[in-house]
Design a protein around this nucleic acid. Structure first.
Lengths: 222, 222
DNA sequence: AGTTTGCGATACGGCCCCGTCTCGTATCGA
DNA sequence: TCGATACGAGACGGGGCCGTATCGCAAACT
């Protein structure tokens, strides 16, 4: 009721929220319940339940929580799912130091590991599917996940071009796509593609840097 | 018409289907009704109705058709939508002759055009997007559309390796992903990436074949 | 002719879900 | 201690859709 900015609000992280206007008089909300709800949604998805098949009642049952406990926090299913997706994508892809090639391998390796985490893999795929006509979800996802990641890799690529490690005659966007496309393909689009080879990132970056074309003479292409 | 092999059957194209076993004795099925159903679904989607929000009753109403007329042709909503989506998909990539490199460019160019069409045709875009969180639908789509396409590119790549045009030391799957990943990224995952450059396919294949790394460097990798 | 099947329409029982509300209980601030 | 608010559980009316089964009529075949 009242205050408690209902739902689609704050990022789940940070924000200790001093609540200046609302001392909240009665029993405080259970952090455990909130956690159980998030966990239940993730568990359901992990079990192969599609976003479409989720419902408030089903989530409440899975979480061992009353429906009212959910409605107290979110106005409807969509708002809840927005928060769920946002939460999943929180971890920062940060990596630093080393050669450009190492940074690229690190980036791809990060994507691989995330893909291996079945939970986030499944949700990622689902969320991406819904992005096309679920504006709110799409906005959150693009803003919190896609944009930073694209910016990060663009930074690495720019450095690579500056240092002469990467070809300067190609469009920078194209280079980014060529580098990141294969691993995204494997983690998001193709369910059955294996991700367990720990050398995968290195191999991919190698293939893309050196090219998949056979060297006309001995060692290298151009 | 023909037998009512109920639904998930034939590809919508071709197949005059002589129907050897069933002369169909009574009134034949109305081709017009079938067309009205397809048209109604597309119209609904064009109006922004999500795949998820479609229902037999809604489609029947929009098509001006009885529910039974739909159930006579498809066993359930899912089967109907599978046919709708399959109908929307562009004709098979189909390309032949020429060098391996040309074939690869042709393949990527096909994907590019398809991406352009997808954007202009709201329906296809929306359908494909939402497909990804409807497991059953997704499976059929994979089987009918994605798998043949993957097989096609695998064939080209195998030929490239045989002819010595492509590196033989890489996993064939990896080569496929590196080749097709970038264009898929642009067409499916990044809605805002430009697709209008007619040279895009050539550039992409060039980048992947020759590598994005600046020439020699220390012979890293293996 | 008579038979058989398809047609649009609509009624039916059943299921699942929504969002609200009410229980009895638990846990906070004052 | 008391009032306020939270909790799990679930009842409740309402709604949408499913898939089947009828209507009465239309259009083909034998």
């Amino acid at each position: 009721m009242q205050t408690d900015t209902p739902a689609v609000r704050r990022a789940p992280a940070a924000v200790p929220a001093p609540e200046p206007c609302a001392p909240r008089r009665g029993r405080p909300r259970s952090e455990a319940a909130e956690q159980a709800i998030y966990t239940a949604v993730e568990a359901l998805m992990e079990d192969g339940v599609g976003l479409t098949d989720l419902s408030i009642e089903r989530i409440a049952a899975a979480a061992g929580v009353g429906k009212a406990t959910i409605y107290r926090r979110w106005p409807n299913l969509e708002a809840l799912l927005v928060d769920v997706v946002a939460r999943l994508e929180a971890p920062p892809p940060q990596l630093c130091g080393g050669s450009v090639q190492d940074e690229l391998v690190g980036m791809v390796e990060y994507m691989r590991r995330r893909g291996l985490a079945k939970r986030s893999r499944w949700v990622l795929k689902s969320a991406l599917g819904q992005l096309h006509d679920w504006p709110e979800l799409r906005a959150v996802y693009q803003e919190r996940v896609v944009k930073p990641r694209r910016e990060l890799i663009r930074t690495i690529v720019r450095r690579g071009i500056d240092e002469g490690v990467l070809r300067a005659d190609l469009d920078i966007e194209l280079v980014c796509e060529v580098l990141i496309g294969p691993i995204l393909l494997r983690t998001i689009l193709w369910d059955d593609a294996p991700l367990d080879d720990p050398e995968l990132a290195r191999k991919m970056v190698d293939a893309v840097l050196n090219g998949v074309g056979a060297a006309p003479a001995g060692g290298q292409s151009h």
